[in-house]
Design a protein around this nucleic acid. Structure first.
Lengths: 184, 184
DNA sequence: ACCTGAACACCGTTCAAGT
DNA sequence: ACCTGAACACCGTTCAAGT
């Protein structure tokens, strides 16, 4: 990392920066060719740094997961565990609708034990697990619901928001329904 | 329709038949080139009969919607309106997980007033609307839930099933949670 | 070490040329 | 009237050639 050539490091950073922009514009299916083009870099250079599209997306996702993990930890002291969990899930939903395909990418990464982001996800999963356990112990959430159910249902609402503006408009309502489903 | 050339009609039927197979194998994103190839037809012929991928999928979807509309009508006489609605939604879910991308296509078509399948969808929507109203009048379903909420939530579970085997494995459980969400 | 872009094998879509 | 496939403009991915 530290001992790589300066141009290589610059290219890496530049690709990531441009990828962030292009993915925000076009979603996770954005053209990698266009990323290379706009980064002013050869196509091979992009592939050298990020062998797969996943590898590129994963780096973009890492900050997102770390931020969500921090948020979960900061909510652990809340006096109202039910509200704390709901607040965190709402933040997760908001984050997963930033661009098209993100909800699917996040869900895939969360459930992928082999992902390079496993450490980062693990921290987030653990923190959310504690929020969930506390909410369940307070009798606010059904005991037959686990973390994965929550990630799945909220990601699904994120996906719905991608499908049509009419769906995005009722995302709040659907989120409310799902929260009611989960409550004890 | 009736006065078209015999070869044209044969091609139309052949393309549809092959498209059904290929889409079942590869999902809604299947290569149209491969459909034409396997149908033994020029690429231009496929485009002449089906100007867009949507046009092709729509024909494949039509039978599905008609079948679901029939099913809804047959459930209208049930003594248990809550169970009838749930049974129909379960069938909708089963149907929407037949191949990858189907849940998204169905949801898009249902919500698209301009679709050529509008008539077909309309019949289904009306029938489901009656099932829903009866369930609500029987006090079994929340009054703040509409048809679109149901289509959205169940399609979302269909989408989840596409994302990973682990999700497909818990589709029943998630369906149960959503049903509880919707109940009065 | 690292970068570059041509090369390959695919797409979707259009349209001139055929029958 | 309809069919065909070459042509065009894109992809993702690899890799020989350069610095």
């Amino acid at each position: 990392m530290a001992n790589q050539r300066a141009d290589a490091r610059r290219n890496y950073e530049r690709i990531l920066e441009v990828a962030g922009t292009v993915v925000a514009e076009q979603g996770t299916q954005a053209s990698l060719r266009e990323v290379a083009r706009r980064a002013g870099v050869g196509l091979g250079t992009l592939y050298r740094h990020f062998p797969t599209r996943e590898a590129l997306l994963e780096v973009l996702l890492r900050q997102r997961f770390d931020g969500l993990a921090d948020k979960a930890r900061s909510l652990e002291d809340s006096q109202d565990p039910g509200a704390a969990l709901e607040q965190w899930l709402r933040q997760f939903l908001a984050g997963s609708t930033t661009y098209r395909g993100l909800a699917a990418s996040m869900l895939a990464t969360i459930e992928d034990e082999a992902s390079p982001l496993h450490a980062s996800c693990h921290a987030m999963r653990e923190a959310v697990g504690r929020l969930l356990t506390r909410a369940q112990e307070a009798g606010r959430v059904r005991s037959d619901v686990d973390r994965t159910d929550l990630f799945a249902l909220v990601s699904a609402i994120g996906w719905l928001s991608d499908q049509a503006p009419a769906m995005a408009d009722r995302a709040d309502h659907l989120f409310g329904l799902v929260m009611d489903a989960v409550k004890a």
